[in-house]
């Protein structure tokens, strides 16, 4: 990005143009209605991070991280405050996805697979930590709590069980979310994408017929 080196903070600030700021609430909305649509269609998955992935691709990791954070704040407000501490998970996953996309991994199928696996591991680790350190082992609010308890009873191992149940819960859900986001991003025309890129002017310096007729 850019020829002149910018400071790290300045780099983050640059990602928050007005366009990016307007994108954030809309991406949050997409996350939420994605989850709602999945439940309306009676699909056994969440699919509630499509907005996060799309915003990561368009406007960078820090914008995506905010999308993740706000999605959880929203869920905490409307459905259950238990979601609040799990913001850490959304933010962490958004950053991982965002930076890996920046590195160009989303362009190839194998790259998408790597992002998928990495984000699943990160989210399981973070979610497990929140469950363990904030809630003492289980929230009692989700299906995975029961799975966790069963695993603990079987293995006598608290942290490992929490992590394992979180992995199982996430692996399939994330795979489908990434598959859908991959298709959608393919469909977004370059013209729309270039509106967000920080170096939009570079984009069109390559254009042959530069001067007006």
């Amino acid at each position: 990005m850019g020829k002149n080196k910018k400071s790290f903070i300045q780099g983050i600030k640059d990602q928050f143009s007005v366009k990016a700021i307007v994108l954030i609430p809309i991406a949050v909305g997409i996350n939420l209605v994605g989850g709602m649509l999945a439940s309306n269609l009676k699909l056994p998955i969440f699919l509630d991070m499509i907005g996060t992935i799309v915003s990561a691709a368009l406007a960078g990791p820090w914008v995506a991280a905010l999308v993740g954070l706000l999605t959880n704040i929203f869920l905490a407000l409307v459905s259950n405050p238990v979601y609040l501490p799990y913001s850490v998970v959304s933010v962490g996953v958004a950053l991982v996805v965002g930076f890996m996309m920046r590195a160009g991994l989303f362009k190839k199928i194998w790259g998408v697979v790597i992002i998928w696996l990495a984000s699943t591991v990160v989210s399981a680790a973070l979610a497990g930590s929140v469950t363990y350190f904030v809630f003492g082992g289980a929230t009692g609010a989700t299906g995975s709590s029961l799975l966790t308890v069963t695993l603990i009873a079987a293995t006598q191992e608290i942290l490992g069980s929490i992590f394992a149940s979180s992995m199982i819960e996430n692996l399939i859900d994330r795979a489908i979310a990434f598959a859908i986001a991959y298709v959608i991003l393919k469909y977004i025309p370059k013209r729309l994408r270039s509106q967000y890129s920080l170096d939009g002017t570079d984009d069109f310096a390559e254009d042959p017929d530069g001067s007006p007729a």
Binding site: V18, I30, L37, I180, I184, Q195
Partner: peptide
């Protein structure tokens, strides 16, 4: 499952178009 993409697709696309004017 097949219904998910045709419904979320236009939602995402049209939302992205809205972003422009809202900005």
């Amino acid at each position: 499952f097949k219904a998910f993409l045709p419904i979320i697709g236009p939602t995402v696309m049209s939302s992205l178009v809205d972003v422009q004017e809202r900005g």
